[in-house]
């Protein structure tokens, strides 16, 4: 096989073909198990949670109710994963000097458009975060939008100047989240319990879902700061 042609071929070695056969076989082995919708429970756990969501959590968006509250421990863990990775990147990329050339000058259009786009980005992110229990949005989406804003600024040549403030906010919001969750044990019956009464009569309004919007704002800030710090670590790496 000529080397020029060989490089473009998918099956360079017989091992590749062997793996392809293995995974092809797996496909037909697994496929019957994942099609079909009958479950042994007559009503799946998620469907039961959907029924209970309006009365117990006060949130019209059942996904939010599940994410932030019914399975809030998963979400606390997930926020910790982001925190973990931001810390790990700081550790791994923060050491040693790097000889990569600084990137070329930022794009003219990006540099000028940033002031135009920024306020809209921020406002949309904020709206999405605080309306997480009413609309298909929430802290993750809003936080990522805020982080997208930071990415835009980085592309436009700006840099995170107050790293300490960023890390302070990161730690503060994370610990507030954990503290609110822990205080639920004594003040609301269970971990992540509802410290703020739910207003069932005001179903579907902003101040109706008890603690969910508060937690989602924490999640939003946390996700935003973590992703900014992840970007920032990679960016510093390239320029150091």
């Amino acid at each position: 096989m000529s080397s020029k042609l060989g490089k473009k071929r998918l099956f360079i070695s017989p091992m590749h073909l062997l793996w392809a056969i293995v995974f092809g076989g797996l496909f037909f082995a697994i496929l019957p198990a994942i099609s079909g919708h009958e479950s042994i429970r007559s009503e799946r756990v998620g469907e039961s949670l959907l029924v209970q969501a309006p009365a117990q959590s006060g949130a019209p968006n059942a996904v939010t109710a599940v994410v932030v509250w019914f399975r809030g421990l998963d979400t606390l863990g997930e926020v910790s994963v982001l925190f973990l990775v931001a810390a790990a990147l700081g550790m791994i990329l923060g050491r040693g000097k790097n000889s990569t050339e600084p990137e070329s000058k930022p794009n003219e259009i990006v540099a000028h458009a940033k002031t135009l786009v920024l306020p809209h980005f921020m406002l949309t992110g904020l709206y999405i975060t605080i309306h997480g229990h009413l609309t298909p949005g929430g802290g993750f989406q809003g936080g990522v939008m805020a982080a997208g804003m930071a990415l835009l600024l980085i592309l436009a040549g700006d840099r995170v100047k107050h790293l300490h403030a960023l890390h302070f906010l990161e730690g503060l919001v994370g610990s507030l989240y954990a503290l609110v969750a822990i205080s639920g044990i004594w003040f609301a019956g269970s971990f992540l319990g509802n410290l703020i009464p739910i207003k069932t009569e005001a179903f579907g309004t902003l101040f109706s879902a008890g603690i969910i919007p508060v937690l989602y704002i924490f999640i939003g800030i946390k996700v935003g700061t973590e992703i900014i710090s992840i970007y920032d670590n990679f960016q510093r790496r390239e320029e150091a």
Binding site: L76, H167, G171, Y177, A181, I182, I185, F191
Partner: peptide, 17 residues
């Protein structure tokens, strides 16, 4: 509460600084 086994290290991690 068993959950404190998880929550306390998490809290300590957030406040590690």
């Amino acid at each position: 509460h068993p959950v404190l086994f998880i929550a306390v290290p998490l809290l300590a991690a957030f406040l590690a600084g």
